[in-house]
């Protein structure tokens, strides 16, 4: 079996072995995701979920209180993710930022693609095919990270 792209070496050391093109792709995706989060675009709606569906007033109060800290949380995660993109060994904190950042990217991209749980695999003719391939890559990387952090 080929060695994994990400492997836990110890509690605070994770080996990262990614192709430079994948690292570049992740850097680009990080910026796109951050732009959506900061703009509050429709693709970022899953980043800011509604907490009180039964009361507009309570929801307004909750949003007033949490919107900015939530945006800052995602910003900080994405910043730590990007600053560690070129490394070959990640710390536990960086791995946590990677898991969160990959999830943010999946939420934004998945929302933009209007993903459905029962959706069949897209064909290569689909205009969004590249987006689906990238989404699958993000899913794979996040899955590996979750598995490794629990090891």
């Amino acid at each position: 079996m080929a060695s994994r792209e990400i492997k836990k070496l110890s509690e605070d050391r994770y080996k990262l072995d990614l192709h430079p093109q994948i690292r570049q792709l992740l850097s680009d995706l990080k910026q796109t995701t951050l732009d959506h989060i900061e703009e509050g675009s429709p693709a970022a709606k899953r980043i800011y979920p509604i907490a009180y569906s039964g009361s507009a007033e309570m929801e307004m109060d909750f949003e007033k209180l949490t919107r900015k800290p939530l945006m800052n949380h995602h910003r900080e995660n994405l910043a730590l993710f990007e600053s560690s993109l070129s490394k070959s060994v990640l710390t536990q904190n960086e791995v946590l930022a990677w898991i969160g950042s990959l999830n943010d990217m999946r939420l934004v991209l998945g929302t933009a693609l209007d993903l459905d749980e029962d959706q069949p695999s897209p064909s290569e003719d689909d205009p969004n095919y590249e987006g689906y391939v990238i989404y699958d890559l993000l899913t794979y990387l996040q899955g590996v990270l979750i598995e490794e952090i629990q090891n």
């Binding site: 979920p49 009180y52 949380h73 999830n103 943010d104």
Partner: peptide
């Protein structure tokens, strides 16, 4: 929400 889960 910080973790991207849909919680109400």
């Amino acid at each position: 929400h910080e973790y991207g889960l849909w919680a109400t």
